[in-house]
Design a protein around this nucleic acid. Structure first.
Lengths: 105, 105
DNA sequence: ATCGTACTACGACGTTCATCGAAGTTTGAT
DNA sequence: ATCAAACTTCGATGAACGTCGTAGTACGAT
């Protein structure tokens, strides 16, 4: 019975709050995810990344990013394709994302 | 016996880590402090801000910001003057601070 | 020397968080 | 109809966090 396919809730642009975004970005694993997504405009299935956490932990992190408005997630087959919400973030907090990504290491 | 006056440790610019900075900024009270400091180049005693937390909680927040490298704190009389480490942050993460401050509300 | 102000250290408390494993759902391929 | 792969949900666990109150230290003024 379809529960997995129930639409994934994403905040509208106006609902994105800076504190939530910062909290979402303030975790090493999630930061690595964001960096990876930054180099894959098309989006990608985070499961392919070598993050060193279990699948259920990854689910938790991707949900945190999605609910904060940092990533957009769309189902594709048995996978979920995540992509950075660059336009929204740049519009709301111009420079923030670039600043984060500029951090070497 | 001077314990209060023992130098306040600040990370060098090279020691500032993006994850720590983001974590430091990801709290409503600390974000209000940073916003206030952004409009006071000279720095100010955070105790004067209407933050709605006790003095000991404020100490905790200012220490978090200082240890992350977001603010510089210098003793002055019985007070501590905090100021934003704008140069360091802009050099390390160009745009980040401006992006955070650009967030309306 | 005393006092008030500004801040800190310490300990406690409840909450949130990152993590995992086990069990379950969905989808696409066989 | 079966099966495997990708992901989710649930519950548990230990760590980190924000908050406070109490007690204490440092400094400036009286």
């Amino acid at each position: 019975m379809g529960v997995m396919t129930v639409v994934l809730p994403h905040p509208e642009r106006d609902e994105i709050r800076i504190a939530s975004v910062l909290h979402a970005l303030a975790d090493p694993v999630r930061l690595r995810i964001v960096r990876a997504l930054a180099t894959h405009e098309e989006g990608l299935s985070c499961g392919v990344l070598p993050l060193g956490v279990t699948a259920s932990t990854l689910t938790h992190h991707v949900r945190t990013l999605r609910e904060a408005g940092v990533v957009r997630v769309r189902p594709q087959g048995t996978s979920r394709i995540s992509s950075l919400r660059r336009e929204d973030l740049d519009a709301l907090f111009p420079g923030l994302l670039d600043g984060v990504l500029a951090a070497r290491r």
